[in-house]
């Protein structure tokens, strides 16, 4: 196996790993843009999305890629409820209160999931698990290609929604200037609900893709991806969606590169080393505007 081939492979694993991060990070960033909050419990929505997918799959035997729509709808509802009853009352009371609230939500969601679905780890097999497609020197499983394509479609859809639709434009206006948006008659509280729900739907999509790619899941699976997604949006710049995508790709590739060159235990640490170096140079992240 040549050096180039190994490099290409690692790059591809990074790209694939980046997809789940990007979906989570984009959702977090959308929420941050509009509401100026970061939900540390975002990974729990990924976890719920994974369980919803697995449960529907077990009950109906539908193609898991179709279930993605269902799990997104479920999470839109959960997201709206969490926004309305948990985050809205504490808006503006301080960043640390948001962390505190997220920790409460983490306890709540993880243990509710453990009650409902037990805490045994599970996994399911995609119907395409045995199909691989040779691309150049690589032999790429079909599932990974679908995952990358689905991620791209979701991101393109989000882009269109934000640019073209009325609601999307109102959301962008709110994230640029909340008071101004209020003055021109935008219902900013409705925008809060929308952004939070869409963010949760993206996490649900990530959850479905997680399950379909054959990764195991349990009630505690959400915390680590959420922290990484959080680090990614800090790296890319809070509120910047291109920043989230590029940050996600950098992380996916850097982690895999570090695992290859330094050993697996440096995988998590290296992403934070990158983060710290970037922030020392640019305190607002790669694409962040200076100041808030």
């Amino acid at each position: 196996m040549g050096e180039l081939e190994i490099f290409l492979q690692i790059l591809f694993w990074g790209l694939y790993a980046g997809c789940i991060y990007i979906l989570l990070a984009t959702g977090l960033n959308l929420i941050f843009g509009v509401m100026k909050i970061v939900n540390f419990a975002h990974g729990e929505f990924l976890m719920v999305g994974a369980y919803v997918t697995a449960t529907v799959f077990a009950l109906t035997g539908l193609n898991p890629y179709v279930i993605i729509l269902f799990s997104m709808v479920v999470l839109v509802a959960i997201g709206a409820a969490v926004e309305r009853f948990c985050f809205r009352p504490i808006l503006g009371t301080g960043k640390l209160n948001e962390i505190f609230l997220s920790l409460g939500l983490i306890y709540l969601f993880q243990n509710l999931a453990a009650l409902i679905w037990t805490d045994k780890w599970q996994s399911i097999q995609s119907p395409y698990a045995s199909i691989s497609i040779p691309i150049g020197p690589l032999n790429v499983p079909l599932d990974y290609i679908i995952i990358i394509v689905v991620t791209a479609i979701i991101l393109a859809g989000l882009h269109l929604f934000l640019k073209r639709s009325r609601t999307g434009r109102a959301m962008r206006a709110t994230s640029q200037n909340r008071k101004g948006a209020m003055l021109v008659g935008i219902d900013v509280e409705r925008m809060d609900v929308f952004s939070f729900s869409i963010g949760c739907a993206l996490a649900a999509a990530a959850g479905t893709l997680w399950v379909v790619s054959g990764q195991v899941f349990n009630p505690y699976m959400g915390s680590i991806p959420a922290v990484k997604a959080f680090a990614i949006i800090i790296l890319g710049g809070l509120g910047s969606i291109p920043g989230a995508i590029i940050g996600g790709l950098i992380y996916g590739v850097a982690e895999n590169g570090a695992a290859f060159l330094l050993g697996g235990m440096w995988k998590d640490a290296v992403s934070f080393i990158i983060l710290i170096v970037v922030l020392v140079v640019r305190p607002t992240g790669l694409f962040g505007e200076s100041g808030e």
Binding site: Q9, I10, W13, Q215, N256, A259, F260, G264
Partner: peptide, 20 residues
């Protein structure tokens, strides 16, 4: 020999080094 942190879910890179 290659190690990874407990709870890891993506082993492809570690495996690629091992395969080499």
């Amino acid at each position: 020999q290659q190690s990874y942190k407990m709870g890891e879910s993506d082993f492809r890179t570690v495996l690629t080094s091992i395969k080499a």
